[in-house]
C-alpha cells in the first residue's frame, strides 16, 4: 500500500479547558479527495490551522511526506507544498488579481518573477479569472474572490490543498462550476481536503469522508456509509431525528 502523504497521529489542541481537536488520527493518500465535515464548531477550521502551522498542536504529531512538521512555521509548511484557502477570503486588496496569484508562485513556488507570472496566468486561466487579471482584487465579486483564493493556492504548486468552505455563499450553478474545478485539480495528483458543512458538496465530490464532532473523529469511511451512520445523523440533527431516521 502507498504511503500517506499527510498523516495526523493523536493530534490534540486545547484552548483553556476546551479540546478543540481531540486525539485525531487520520491519513491522507496522494491524489484523493477527502471531505472533512461536521456541524458548526466541530473543530474543522482548527484542524486546518493545525496542519498549516497557524496553531501549534498541544500534543500529537503531524507528518507530511514522512517528516514531522509540527515545529515548522506556516511559511515553511506552505513552501513544502501544503496550501490552504481561507473560509473568509483574504486577498491582498490593493494588488491586482494577477499580483495576488503571483504572490503564491513567487514565494511558495520559489520562482523568479517572470516564471512566476507565467505560472500565475496559467492558474488564472484554469479558474477562469484570466479576463480579470488586471483588476484590483478588492473589486471582485464573492464567487470570483473564492476562485482567486483557489488560483493563488494552485500557483503555489501544492501537493496537498485544503479548501476551507470554498463553496460557502455561492449559488447553485457557481457551486457546480467550482466542483468541476476541484475534480480537475485532484486529477493532477493533488490531495484535496474539502472542509464543508454542505453535505451535497462532499457527497458529490469526495470518495471518503471524515466527520468531526466536538473536535474528535466521529465517523470515517466511504461517503455513503458515513452519511448513513446514525451517530452522524444525530450530530447534525439531534437525537430525536436520529431515532426517527433509524426507526
Amino acid at each position: 500500500m502507498a504511503e500517506p502523504i499527510l498523516e495526523l497521529r493523536n493530534v490534540t489542541r486545547t484552548f483553556g479547558g476546551v479540546r478543540a481537536t481531540d486525539d485525531v488520527s487520520l491519513a491522507f493518500m496522494p491524489g484523493e479527495i477527502v471531505g472533512l465535515i461536521g456541524p458548526n464548531g466541530a473543530g474543522k477550521t482548527t484542524l486546518v490551522n493545525l496542519i498549516s502551522g497557524f496553531l501549534p498542536v498541544s500534543s500529537g504529531e503531524i507528518r507530511y511526506e514522512g517528516r514531522s512538521i509540527v515545529r515548522q512555521a506556516p511559511h515553511q509548511i506552505a513552501r513544502a507544498g501544503i496550501a490552504r484557502t481561507f473560509q473568509i477570503v483574504q486577498p491582498f486588496a490593493q494588488m491586482t488579481v494577477l499580483e495576488n496569484v503571483m504572490a503564491g508562485s513567487i514565494f511558495a513556488g520559489a520562482l523568479g518573477l517572470k516564471a512566476a507570472r507565467a505560472k500565475a496566468v496559467e492558474a488564472l486561466e484554469f479558474v477562469r479569472l484570466a479576463p480579470f487579471m488586471d483588476m484590483p482584487a478588492s473589486e471582485l465579486a464573492l464567487a470570483n474572490r473564492k476562485r482567486l483564493e483557489l488560483a493563488k493556492s494552485l500557483a503555489m504548486n501544492p501537493r496537498v490543498l485544503m479548501l476551507d468552505e470554498v463553496n460557502a455563499g455561492l449559488n447553485s450553478s457557481e457551486i457546480t462550476e467550482a466542483l468541476g474545478m476541484i475534480r480537475a485539480i485532484a486529477e493532477r495528483g493533488i490531495t484535496i481536503i474539502v472542509i464543508e458543512h454542505l453535505i451535497r458538496v462532499v457527497a458529490e465530490l469526495a470518495e471518503r469522508a471524515v466527520v468531526l464532532h466536538h473536535g474528535a473523529v466521529l465517523s470515517e469511511g466511504p461517503v455513503d456509509s458515513v452519511l448513513k451512520d446514525p451517530r452522524v445523523v444525530e450530530a447534525y440533527l439531534g437525537n430525536r431525528f436520529a431515532r426517527r431516521f433509524a426507526g
Binding site: H75, R84, Q90, P91, F107
Partner: peptide, 11 residues
C-alpha cells in the same frame, strides 16, 4: 495588506 495571507503564500 494581510500578514496572515502573506505567511500562507510562503513569505
Amino acid at each position: 495588506q494581510n500578514e496572515q495571507a502573506a505567511s500562507m503564500v510562503g513569505i
